[in-house]
Write a protein that binds this DNA or RNA. Structure first.
Lengths: 223, 223
DNA sequence: ACCTGAACACCGTTCAAGT
DNA sequence: ACCTGAACACCGTTCAAGT
């Protein structure tokens, strides 16, 4: 191959490489907006393509399958989780507390994706980095590796469970449903949905503190 | 209307009411088996109907929509959760511990349904009965109603989160994925899936005990 | 009352064709 | 390289028709 002063001469012979209509980032952003607005079921390749003003099959130039696209969407959410507390010199409890709250915030902003992302990190880089940071923090603090694994797991259980669905909003706002004969203790359940945000956040904070209290008891008993 | 000795005489004039091919129970059982075996995506009205040797639209004689059918499937799983500990004279911690383990067992037996059932009880009788029993137990034990609500919520977060997806199986069994440069602490992650059952169960039990320890600290501080 | 086939407006994905 | 229309094998649901 001889060098020329003109860059890539053979490109001049084929059609002008006009800037592509799509990119992976544009597709992921549109997919995330669609899922947030209308739920996972609304994410069809045809609907998403329409949103981007292209035809359905165009997406297959950028993602091999719809599942691959969904993977990218999910990992973009995982990238929103703050991990900076694991770089600072905090004790494990302080770091885990801050991380869990940031993790929950990222997930509750995109609740329809929680069932997908709760399947585990898979090969998603942001999800793997998160798991690495949490495990590293616990091991560095002196937790045995087996215990550190379990703590990473149980924290994920709690955070994903709290983001999967609102507890308060799960009870229909229909007073006639909670008859004393059938459900003697649910007389006020129809008013739960009203205070949805505070109840869910309060339950999460109570659970997180209780969980960390319980873990700290075990930490003190370590040899 | 005059009574006759023969029952329902007008029935004799129309075609013999042969025993129906379908019933709600048969449909629910087949749907549950299908979802357990092949996942939520495999549950289509046409596929389910084929499994039952009828044609697709037949199902609409027994359920108004596919969502109604799914509701019935989910509530049948909730019916498998043991609530008997709430009738016996146990302290709240003992009862909650036994209930949480039974709850998790029912859900892990049908993991594909967890995202649906974690949306809350809705109008499903078994799910409402469960919420009623837990809340009643806590209030009877002396927990203030606001705290009892939060504990009901956080327990659901933890149990559904633990059943939503295996922690261990979320890490691909591919040693080349966990390069030291990218993930310095995940060197052994490819071996997690091997011990999937014990890791997940161990993490759940550790978390449950830690959670109950933390709640007991708060219980002792109650006025 | 309960089941059927045909029909409607959707799906994900492949592929040959265009630039 | 990237986008398109046509096509294939699917969806949930409605409805008129059969018994």
């Amino acid at each position: 191959m001889t060098r020329t002063q003109q860059p890539a001469p053979q490109e001049a012979e084929i059609a002008r490489p006009r800037t592509p209509l799509l990119s992976r980032d544009r597709i992921v952003a549109a997919a995330l907006a669609l899922v947030d607005a209308e739920g996972l079921a609304a994410l069809s390749t045809r609907r998403l393509a329409a949103e981007l003003s292209v035809s359905g099959p165009s997406l297959y130039n950028h993602f091999a399958t719809k599942d691959d696209l969904l993977d990218a969407v999910v990992d973009s959410v995982m990238g929103e989780v703050d991990l900076s507390m694991f770089d600072a010199p905090h004790d494990w409890r302080t770091a885990l507390h801050a991380w869990a709250r940031s993790y929950r915030a990222a997930l509750t902003a995109h609740p329809h994706l929680v069932p997908v992302l709760a399947q585990g990190p898979g090969r998603r880089p942001h999800a793997l980095r998160l798991a690495d940071a949490v495990f590293g923090c616990l091991v560095d603090a002196g937790w045995p590796r087996g215990q550190a694994t379990r703590i990473g797991a149980l924290m994920r259980y709690f955070v994903t469970g709290s983001a999967l669905g609102s507890f308060a909003a799960g009870f229909p706002d229909d007073a006639t449903l909670y008859t004393a004969a059938d459900y003697p203790h649910l007389g006020d359940a129809h008013r739960l949905a009203e205070h949805r945000r505070t109840i869910d956040q309060g339950a999460f904070d109570t659970g997180l503190d209780a969980l960390l209290d319980g873990l700290e008891l075990r930490y003190r008993r370590l040899p």
